[in-house]
């Protein structure tokens, strides 16, 4: 295999950087707030509720423009998970094993509960929870 002639970590660094930079550059340039720029989430357009990931494109767009509050407004859960996922990517590039938190036995179960509760909560029409929806201007 040609693989042995290449520095694996360098390859990973390139892949990792591209995995962060390309999507950020895309949403920075192409505004997801404009109708028709990106496909709408099928769940949202068919069922009419916010899925756990709804608003993540707009959140990444906010993030790319340095608007942290707007990013949280569009998808707070993604913002909470991003540091964790970024850390995992960094560890993958550095050929280190997953963080202790991700290797925790009940990590998948916790993620399942958190993400399900997140989807339920952001669709409830009561005041403290409805700000969690992906809609614009719920917060700021």
């Amino acid at each position: 295999m040609k693989r042995s002639l290449v520095r694996p970590s360098l390859v990973r660094a390139v892949i990792g950087s591209a995995a962060v930079a390309l999507p950020l550059a895309t949403v920075w340039l192409v505004d997801p707030n404009v109708e028709g720029h990106y496909p709408t989430c099928p769940i949202r357009s068919v069922v009419g509720v916010d899925c756990p990931g709804c608003g993540s494109l707009r959140a990444m767009h906010d993030l790319a423009h340095g608007d942290l509050l707007g990013a949280f407004d569009h998808n707070a859960m993604l913002m909470l998970f991003l540091p964790l996922l970024g850390l995992e990517l960094a560890r993958w590039v550095a050929r280190r094993p997953s963080s202790a938190l991700m290797r925790w036995r009940y990590a998948p179960m916790t993620a399942l509960v958190v993400l399900s509760a997140w989807m339920l909560a952001r669709n409830l029409p009561m005041f403290p929870l409805d700000v969690l929806g992906s809609g614009v201007g719920d917060w700021a």
Binding site: P52, S56, M77, L78, F81, L85, A107, P108, A111, L115
Partner: peptide
Amino acid sequence: LVHSILATLLC
């Protein structure tokens, strides 16, 4: 797990 969380939140 990381892949699945990414899939859930981004796709």
